[in-house]
Design a protein around this nucleic acid. Structure first.
Length: 225
DNA sequence: AGCCAGGACTGAG
DNA sequence: CTCAGTCATGGC
């Protein structure tokens, strides 16, 4: 069998897998994260907090235009200039501060992301969470998409979609509880977690905005127990 | 013309 | 400890 025909994932027989398969069959692979370098992914993860990706993309483009998409350049750049560049992504004062606190953390590692990649996932997660401005979703996005660790990312879309698919407890549940639910239901697999989260976002952006269940796709056929 | 976006922190009480 | 308030731009 040719490599490209190799099917995707070997999944347990449960609803979480079933929903993944449906999403995957509708949308196909998403090729996330929409950013090229590791550093760009991290910056994007911070800038996209409660913000549409479209706006973040402008900010990233601006930074790229001035060659600031590497830790040292961004760290030494004029704060007012950086703020102007990231303005399109909103909350630009506080987001500058958050970028800065990440960069200050990086100074402990000689501004080298490569050195971070030797830290085990558990420790790296708690170090990221210790940075002011990086909460669970941002930390996990960085772990999954920038460092390719098998960590499932939870966001508001995940809560909303799965609440509507029968898991109403997710509306009130803590981040960690929801994350544990997914990671217990699925094998530990970076590519799988990558696609799954991307597919949830992809789906919710297009269809799930205001409808209780999605009429345009067959997600309502999931037979949630 | 509002409403909302791939959150997280702060300060009251 | 909980939780409302705050941060802010651009697209629909």
């Amino acid at each position: 069998m040719a490599m490209k025909d190799k099917p995707l994932f070997r999944l347990p027989d449960n609803n979480v897998s079933k929903i993944f398969n449906i999403l995957y069959s509708i949308y196909g692979p998403q090729f996330w994260w929409p950013g090229e370098s590791q550093f760009e992914i991290i910056i994007g993860a911070i800038l996209t907090q409660n913000t549409s990706w479209q706006n973040v993309a402008k900010a990233i483009t601006n930074l790229k235009e001035y060659d600031l998409l590497d830790p040292k350049s961004l760290f030494t750049a004029d704060p007012y200039h950086v703020k102007e560049l990231i303005k399109p992504s909103g909350f630009y004062n506080i987001k500058y501060k958050r970028l800065r606190s990440f960069l200050e953390y990086l100074t402990n590692y000689e501004m080298s992301l490569n050195r971070l990649s030797f830290i085990n996932t558990y420790d790296l997660r708690s170090e990221l969470l210790n940075i002011n401005g990086i909460g669970p979703e941002t930390a996990d996005s960085i772990l999954l998409y920038a460092f390719e660790r098998p960590i499932f990312v939870i966001d508001s879309y995940t809560r909303r979609l799965f609440s509507r698919l029968g898991y109403e407890w997710m509306k009130e549940a803590s981040y960690d509880d929801i994350q544990a639910f997914f990671m217990n239901a699925l094998p530990s697999d970076t590519k799988l977690y990558n696609e799954y989260h991307a597919l949830i976002v992809r789906h919710c952006k297009s269809l799930c905005r205001k409808q209780p269940l999605c009429s345009k796709c067959n997600l309502s056929d999931c037979n949630i127990a």
